[in-house]
Design a protein around this nucleic acid. Structure first.
Lengths: 249, 249
DNA sequence: CCTTTTTATTTGCATATGCAAATCGAGCTT
DNA sequence: AAGCTCGATTTGCATATGCAAATAAAAAGG
């Protein structure tokens, strides 16, 4: 059918009707029940199902469209949009893309890979429970043959079970996750540290050289997905962002 | 009168009516014609002035309210909102505030101050024309008596003429600018560098220690306002931001 | 004078209606 | 088969109407 899951739209009775509709549909999208590309029921269908007027349904959908969650076209109807690839502020989510935008050839190498419980060291570094079942990866990304960034990542196997069978031979884990998971929250911390001897050797810089350290953790609702530590040789890297006081003006 | 400048609201005839109204009012706010706190004309007044229905006017204002540009209250009416103090992502716009949030006593000292044309060095560092008339300031911010960050700033005197007569004895320039200027665009770059001997001495760290370098430039429309270079001792500082793929979910 | 009640104003929400614009598809024409 | 016309569907916009909620200001009451 054209409107696959119209019965999934249920209102919670809290607040204005148009906002209940908006949240109901938003939640279906964020939960992954309606993945990108799914056809959203037409205004008339929602109107009948929910017993609201078309203007009220329209208001909810128009707002979701402004927020970028859905794409609407006359006659064609409404579909769930793909999440924006990058966020306004220094969201370098894809390292291959980042390297290619510098005009260089991208490659990567997995240095280490393991599955199992988080070690004490990892649990501390990524602030997660010892009992968490995780995949742990260490890899090095190259730009034109030269080391670009050192990545240290854990992925929660409970949230993303497919990770256990994935070799990451084709796609580095960051990009793989973008395709195989949905995130609603991220935390991003940037600091400057000196490279320790081991890191320096891998990155082919001198020990003690300043590096940018990016630590990012992402969740879907309350469930942790991944935590990553990216170490960039400092002299060569900077993060740039543009924004206005109210977002994008 | 309660609606000071209703005649300033003029439509451009481009696109949907509600959006013309929305943009007309938004532009008055961003241009500073209606500073924060100004009473926005009531829906009825705009309705008569513009010849639109109340629903249409309401739609424009409701959207501006969602965007945070205005604040609306029943019976009291609508006023222009104050710009949000900090933006989602690592906008530490106020250093005094940043220090106080760390639970420490804030103070600062001006190391150098001059007015005039930008020197070659400054022009290069901040990517501006040699002919620009600027105020140039170097200052050191302290947290609980210890150096916190080294600030190097230029302010365009043409855009902000009051700067020439301001001593910055009471308020550091970053905070002063927040009160005395309006910005619509900012650019933010973060990198890691090693402190040079002179900087290290001021910050009371060892030369070569990794530091976070934040470079920020702000504009109002196309007019440059200020460019600043903030050097944070690295071990002690990190920037944290939280966000979702669609902004705030 | 202080407190309570009433009134009036302003925004917020929902509905019904009508028309316009975009565009997908079917059917028709050549 | 290729192109064209036309009808049907879906979203987009604007209006008019009515009522509800919040609340500032005025009026009433003690």
């Amino acid at each position: 059918m054209s409107a696959p899951q119209i019965d999934a739209v249920t209102l919670d009775g809290a607040g204005p009707l148009y906002d209940q509709i908006r949240r109901a549909i938003r939640d279906l999208i964020l939960a992954g029940t309606w993945p990108p590309g799914t056809a959203v029921p037409a205004e008339h269908a929602l109107m009948e199902k929910l017993g609201a007027s078309r203007m009220t349904v329209h208001r909810a959908l128009a707002q979701l469209a402004r927020e970028g969650l859905i794409t609407r076209r006359r006659r064609s109807g409404t579909i769930v949009a793909s999440p924006p690839a990058s966020h306004a502020m220094l969201d370098i989510l894809s390292i291959p893309q980042e390297v290619r935008e510098l005009g260089q050839i991208y490659s990567y190498r997995i240095l280490q890979r393991s599955n199992g419980k988080a070690s004490r060291d990892l649990a501390t570094r990524f602030e997660l429970g010892r009992s968490a079942n995780v995949a742990h990866l260490t890899l090095l990304h190259f730009a034109g043959g030269a080391p670009h960034v050192l990545e240290d990542r854990v992925i929660h196997s409970e949230t993303i079970p497919q990770v256990t069978d994935e070799s990451f031979a084709e796609t580095p884990p960051g990009d793989w996750l973008l395709q195989n998971s949905l995130w609603t929250q991220a935390e991003h911390a940037i600091s400057a540290i000196a490279a320790d001897p081991q890191e320096a050797e891998l990155l082919k810089i001198d020990a003690g050289e300043p590096c940018l350290l990016v630590e990012r953790r992402t969740w879907n609702q309350a469930e942790p997905i991944t935590a990553v530590r990216l170490l960039y040789p400092g002299g060569r890297h900077r993060f740039v962002g543009r924004f206005g006081p109210y977002g994008s003006v």
